[in-house]
């Protein structure tokens, strides 16, 4: 075994890359659950975001030619965010307006994300599993050898930003109030439903961004089921991070490290790859069981509110 500096550098960068989509999604989940709506649809929303980014970029390339378009990946990211928001809106309408069981409604969206991409892919590319590769991926920023996608930086910047929004602005106070005690918030004149819509929409937009990162930052195409449980792991990270941006930063780094380790160990003779792949999932189960610390969810999470 030869674990030299190159290995550790690769592991470090890989950790940052693996953490990025988790961080986006977990922060999104935090906004949604702080407002009182469970959103396990994030897994599916990541897939929809990834599909959108890959297909939009490929379609534009198809129309304008492949030549470098520095603006194009950003269009992909924005459209993925928009679609993520739209899909989240479906979940929001069904679970807020129609008081559906939030977990079932979100599961429906996850099921949709298993089937719908195949229809779109078959329509555009004639196969049901992956999109055509794109040329205009997100750029890499940073010094030679340590260059990372701009979305990686953005994800880590979002941590202090969402901390500020959640704990230092009136908006954040209202959002938390709605998730803890909607009746009281309502009495004080906060529009409970509107805050919840905003919370869910934010989660969808962020998960869509995570999807865009997977499709045109991490890879250069959409592959069926490419999120591979990321959305669920992010939710576990959110619980483990106690619904707090800083906690979430720590927990997503842990999960990101677990995934990165799994990737780095592949092809080595230390552990078989098929087993190592299960590593993040095992960590999730252990974390949820409270073996590594307990946490308390927002009091009104999962309960529909009616006046």
């Amino acid at each position: 075994m030869n674990l030299d500096t190159a290995f550790w550098t690769a592991l470090f960068l890989s950790t940052l890359r693996q953490t990025t989509p988790l961080l986006f999604t977990a922060l999104g989940g935090m906004f949604s659950e702080r407002s009182g709506v469970v959103n396990i649809a994030l897994e599916g929303i990541i897939l929809f975001g990834a599909l959108t980014a890959a297909v939009v970029v490929e379609r534009v390339e198809n129309a304008l030619g492949p030549g470098p378009h520095p603006w194009l990946p950003w269009v992909g990211v924005l459209s993925a965010m928009a679609v993520g928001g739209l899909v989240a809106l479906v979940h929001a309408v069904v679970s807020i307006r129609y008081r559906a069981d939030q977990i079932i409604s979100a599961t429906a969206i996850n099921l949709l994300a298993l089937g719908a991409p195949s229809l779109v892919l078959t329509y555009f590319y004639g196969n049901a599993t992956n999109s055509k590769e794109v040329v205009n991926r997100l750029p890499l920023w940073g010094p030679e050898g340590f260059a990372l996608s701009p979305l990686v930086y953005l994800a880590f910047l979002l941590v202090p930003l969402s901390w500020w929004v959640l704990f230092k602005t009136p908006f954040g106070l209202r959002l938390r109030a709605v998730g803890e005690h909607p009746e009281a918030a309502d009495t004080l004149g906060v529009n409970v439903h509107r805050m919840r819509y905003i919370g869910v929409l934010l989660s969808g937009v962020l998960a869509g961004m995570a999807g865009a990162y997977l499709a045109i930052g991490f890879l250069n195409q959409f592959v069926r089921g490419m999120s591979a449980g990321l959305g669920f792991i992010a939710l576990a990270a959110m619980i483990f991070g106690k619904w707090h941006p800083l906690g979430i930063l720590g927990s997503t780094l842990l999960f990101g490290f677990a995934s990165a380790l799994a990737i780095q160990l592949q092809g080595t003779e230390i552990l078989p790859a098929v087993l190592v792949q299960a590593f993040p999932y095992v960590v999730t189960v252990l974390v949820l069981a409270g073996f590594i610390g307990r946490s308390r969810p927002p009091a009104a999470v999962g309960r529909p509110y009616e006046k």
Binding site: V90, V94, S95, Y98, A100, D101, I104, S105, T107, A108, I109, L111, L112, L114, G115, A116
Partner: peptide, 10 residues
């Protein structure tokens, strides 16, 4: 199937 689940939930 997914749509049916969504609509029944609602």
């Amino acid at each position: 199937q997914a749509l049916v689940v969504l609509f029944i939930a609602a």
